[in-house]
Design a protein around this nucleic acid. Structure first.
Lengths: 237, 237
DNA sequence: GCGCACCAACTAACATGTTAGTTGACACAT
DNA sequence: ATGTGTCAACTAACATGTTAGTTGGTGCGC
C-alpha cells in the first residue's frame, strides 16, 4: 500500500548499488543501516525477512551477520534470535580509550617524520574545516573532521592503523549520531585541530600527542549525558 | 598405512575437544594450527578436504574461514582457492606499532590507578619469570611473559584492550614461533619487565610508558633477520 | 487465581544441492 | 618451439533443504 512495504521494513540501502560479493554487499548495507541508527539498538534481525527484502538467500546474509556479530554491532542469541546491539557507556569509554591510544601514538610518530606534502594536506583540510564551520555546514564539517584524523593515521605509513581505529570506534561512530550540534563546539574542534597541526609542523612529538589527547578527551563528557537522554538505546550487555 | 592418513593431512586439533558451536570449534582448530605454523604460510586450504578431515559440512568451515580471512590469517582468492597468508615484514612492523600504541597507553593508565592487589599480582608474575628463567624453562617463561602483558591490559579496567591487542598481534604471535631462544634474552626481558613494574609501583606514568616502549622495541630487531632466514614464509601481500 | 509441564511455532545452526568463475592443460595455429 | 584459444576439472559462492534448540502460549493440576 505504501512505499514502506515496497522497500521492506527498514531503510536498507539497496545492495544493487554496491560492489563485491553478495555477502560483502549485504554486510555493507546492514552495517550502514546500523551505524546510521536506521536500525536502532534492539531491532531484531530475522534472516528470513532480510533474505526476502534483499532478494538473496540465507548464505550471504549469514556471513554478513557473523561479521557484524564479531564487530559487536549485533548480538546473536544462539538458536533464537539476533538483534542490533545496545549501547553501553562502558563500551563507549573503552572505545575512547582505544582510539586515544591509537591516535596519540600515530600523531606522535607523524610529528617526527612529517613531510612537506603531508603538512600541506593537513593544512588544507583544517582551512576547509574553518570554511565549513563559517558556512554552518555541519555535515560537511563532520566529514572533514573525520578526514583530518584519517589523514594523520595514514601518514604513519601503516595502512592498518586507520582500519583498526575504524573497527575499534564503531560504537563511538554510532553514538555520535545521537549528538546534537552544540553551539560553538565545531569552532572549538577546529582550534584543537589547528593546535595538533601546529605541533606536527613544529616537529614536536610530545606537544602533538598532548594536543591530540586534549582534543579527543572532549568527546566523553559530551557522550556521557546520552545514557539518560536516550535510555532506550542503552543498557544490558 | 601411517597415522598421517588417519589424522588427515595436517595437525588439526580434533574439534571434539573444543566447546561452542561447530563453526567456533572449526575456527579455533584452524587458528591454532596456523599460529603454531602446523599449517605454514602458503598452505592451500580446501573446503572439501577440511570437511572430510573434521567430519563436518561446509557451512561451519566456510564461517571459520571467513573469520580467519577477516583477521588476515588466510587469503581467499575468490572462486579459486584459499591459502594460509604469508608473512610480510611491513605487516609485522605495523603490528609492533599497534601493539606499542595499545600497551604503552595501557601501562600509562595502570601506573596512575594501580591498586595494591594489582601490584602484588604483577610482582608475583615477575618473580615467577625469574624462577623460570633460572630453571631454563623457556616455554614456561614465554607463558609468564604473555601473562605479564595480559595483566597490565586487564588492569586498565577495559576487557576489550587485550582482545584488540591479541587480534592486532596475530601476525606477531605467528612470527615469534620462528624465533630461536637467544642467549641472555629471557633474562634481559625479565629485567625490562621489572623496570616497568617499578615505574608502575612508583606511580610514574611517563616512566612506565618509557620502560614499556623500551621493552617492546627489543622485538623488531630480533624479527628483522627472519625475512632472510625463512624467505619461504615471506613475500607478497 | 496460580504455578508448572507440555506443545506448537519459530529461529539459528548445520547439511547438502547448484551455479558460476577460475585455472591449468592440451590441441592447434603460427 | 611458441603463443593462443578452447575446454574440462576444480573451487568458492550461492541457494535450499533439514535439524535441533529456544520461546511463548495453553491447558492442566493445584
Amino acid at each position: 500500500m505504501n512505499e514502506t512495504v515496497a522497500m521492506g521494513m527498514a531503510g536498507l540501502t539497496d545492495i544493487e548499488s554496491l560492489s563485491g560479493s553478495l555477502a560483502q554487499r549485504v554486510y555493507q548495507s546492514l552495517r550502514e543501516a546500523i551505524l546510521s541508527l536506521a536500525l536502532p539498538p534492539g531491532t531484531v534481525l530475522k534472516k528470513g525477512a532480510l533474505c526476502e527484502q534483499l532478494g538473496v538467500s540465507r548464505s550471504p546474509v549469514s556471513e554478513a551477520i557473523a561479521r557484524l556479530s564479531q564487530e559487536g554491532l549485533v548480538d546473536v542469541i544462539p538458536q533464537s534470535a539476533t538483534r542490533v546491539s545496545s549501547f553501553s557507556m562502558e563500551e563507549i569509554r573503552e572505545a575512547c580509550f582505544l582510539r586515544e591510544a591509537l591516535e596519540t601514538t600515530a600523531v606522535e610518530k607523524v610529528a617526527r617524520q612529517r613531510t612537506e606534502e603531508q603538512l600541506t594536506q593537513l593544512s588544507r583540510n583544517v582551512r576547509l574545516q574553518r570554511l565549513l564551520v563559517e558556512d554552518g555546514d555541519f555535515s560537511g564539517f563532520y566529514t572533514a573532521d573525520e578526514e583530518f584524523h584519517e589523514l594523520i593515521m595514514e601518514f604513519t605509513g601503516f595502512p592498518g592503523v586507520s582500519l583498526v581505529a575504524g573497527n575499534v570506534s564503531l560504537q563511538l561512530k554510532r553514538a555520535r549520531m545521537l549528538l546534537l550540534p552544540e553551539e560553538g563546539r565545531p569552532a572549538g574542534a577546529v582550534k584543537e585541530h589547528q593546535r595538533v597541526l601546529d605541533a606536527i609542523r613544529a616537529g614536536d612529538p610530545a606537544a602533538a600527542q598532548a594536543a591530540m589527547k586534549a582534543h579527543l578527551r572532549q568527546l566523553i563528557p559530551r557522550l556521557e549525558p546520552l545514557e539518560r537522554l536516550h535510555p532506550e538505546y542503552f543498557r544490558s550487555r
